[in-house]
Design a binder for these strands. Structure first.
Lengths: 311, 311
DNA sequence: TCCATTGTTTGAAATTACCAAATAATGACT
DNA sequence: AGTCATTATTTGGTAATTTCAAACAATGGA
């Protein structure tokens, strides 16, 4: 396959534009001899001379005119394509497409979303609520948010939240009818509403903490959803006890639709991570989001520490 | 000024087209590592990754898509421009623009024109009859024909005729009135019609040969033209004796409108040369013309030699 | 005729491109 | 789950190209 001496063409076009070889050399930031040799190389590969030259002037030959007329716009387009791509990479405006679960949205993104949008007016977010783990690359997402950092090695994961508070919950109507559990082992005698991971297909373990120790329990379940939203909905309808992130149901706790159970035993879940293919490391919009969330996390941790210190 | 890594872009486009780096490497005729390194260099200069890559597939990132969509047509156009220029150089079709005097046409071009046009059906000739020597380059001519090879050093001159026969001539009416000269020195007593070089501004010397020696004579002239055609026309009208190339007036000799004088003293003029700027050396159409005329010259010389041998 | 300016040549130095082989990683296959 | 063919990447060394600085040559105007 024939290689095109595009570098030579750039030199050629510069000579035409600048009107002389030395001027072209100055414009290109190289010596005059480099330009002369490049032009000669191009002419040799074309098999024809492009300029009539004297020491006082360079003038296009017929072949030179033909090349110039055809190559100048093409080269301009190529320059533009290059510039456009680079600008896109550096741009602080654009659309960022993220894939995340509803829980991730509530716990990780929602608390900072308003501030992020205000601070980065040029960035649009396109958020896909996917309970399942999707293929970030093939689906055209820039990144995603998920719990834990167990990811394929070509992904970069950045922690963006503290560990997540979990709660056991049930509707007041259910508690009236069946009573409230006092200890995790009481759960075995209750109607539990559980959650199945869509990706792995496994039931999510219920984990509690007792005397600083983590224990896994496996209460019976007559209702199983593949989304946390389903679990919460069913609990609101009084079907039983659920376990999930506090953030996803803060509203229902406030209104009294749901009540918290077994608070001393509630265990923290792993923090959320913003993850993305390492190829997207240099997408400026994504970097802005990552940095913003890292900063937010730090600030939250510092204010927490201050609160702790005041006590 | 920023340099565009066009070579890298070529590699990039080939990867997209071929679907993998190794296929691209094969298509480009280089090793796989070269492609990998080129791509990485391009990505570094752009500041962004262009492919999601695994060992089984390469897939464009968003930036890669943008670059591909903009750069592919531009690169195609550039390739086309390059090809077009080369084809133009190699083409055996096209228009050849020549500048020559009427005398050069009659003596050098007219005798072979028909055969040349027949042999090269793709070539069009655009002939400008210029008595003056014009600037071949600036006037857009590919070349010219003139007598003698005294040219600037960046011109190439190729002999295309034998030495040119010259004749003295006058109309029968003039000869009746004033008698015919028997010896060159008789010309000093005749009405001579002379020719002034438009380029140099000098009167053209009349040169005769006597006993193998060249002598220059300077007969009086009441009529001076800046073209040989003018001299001939005036002679036909009976105004006096002219001196010019035989070829330009062969017709008038045949019809008896003009008669030849002083034949034993007629000196050969220098041959005609086809000349052109050395930058046009590789213009294929011009090469065809040059080669054709050189061949014609050789054949004419050989047949002349045969005729001489037969005697 | 001189002279400032410009294109070209030249040999050395710097840069870049490339290769071959080793390495790492993936996805299909058994 | 493990094997295997295939693919991208890294690495160290080599070849090719590009560039520079300086000397040179040539042109056209003063």
């Amino acid at each position: 396959m024939e290689r095109i001496p595009t570098h030579g063409i750039e030199v050629f076009l510069t000579i035409v534009r600048e009107g002389s070889m030395r001027a072209a050399a100055a414009a290109l930031g190289v010596g005059a001899s480099a330009v002369s040799l490049q032009l000669k190389a191009l002419e040799d590969r074309l098999g024809i001379e492009l300029f009539f030259r004297t020491t006082r002037s360079v003038e296009l030959t017929e072949a030179g005119k033909i090349l110039f007329e055809a190559a100048a716009p093409a080269h301009r387009d190529l320059t533009y394509a290059f510039k456009k791509t680079r600008e896109m990479a550096r741009s602080t405006t654009g659309t960022l497409r993220l894939s995340l679960s509803r829980g991730a949205y509530m716990a990780a993104l929602a608390p900072v979303l308003k501030a992020f949008l205000a601070e980065n007016p040029g960035i649009k977010l396109e958020i896909s609520w996917d309970e399942e783990l999707v293929d970030i690359n093939r689906q055209g997402f820039h990144g995603g948010i998920r719990m834990g950092d167990a990811l394929s090695p070509d992904m970069i994961a950045v922690r963006i939240t503290p560990p997540i508070k979990s709660v056991f919950f049930a509707a007041p109507s259910y508690l009236q009818a069946f009573g409230a559990p006092e200890h995790p082992r009481d759960l075995l005698d209750h109607q539990c509403i559980r959650h199945r991971h869509p990706t792995s297909g496994k039931l999510r373990e219920w984990r509690v903490t007792e005397d600083g120790q983590d224990i896994s329990i496996d209460p019976p379940a007559r209702l199983i959803f593949d989304s946390a939203a389903g679990v919460i909905q069913a609990a609101r309808e009084g079907h039983g006890i659920g376990w999930s992130m506090k953030a996803t149901m803060a509203d229902h706790l406030k209104t009294g639709e749901l009540a918290t159970l077994l608070e001393p035993f509630a265990r923290d879940l792993p923090p959320f991570y913003l993850y993305f293919p390492k190829q997207n490391k240099r997408v400026e919009c994504l970097r802005l989001l990552v940095n913003f969330m890292k900063t937010q996390l730090k600030e939250r941790q510092r204010s927490n520490a201050e609160i702790a210190a005041e006590r």
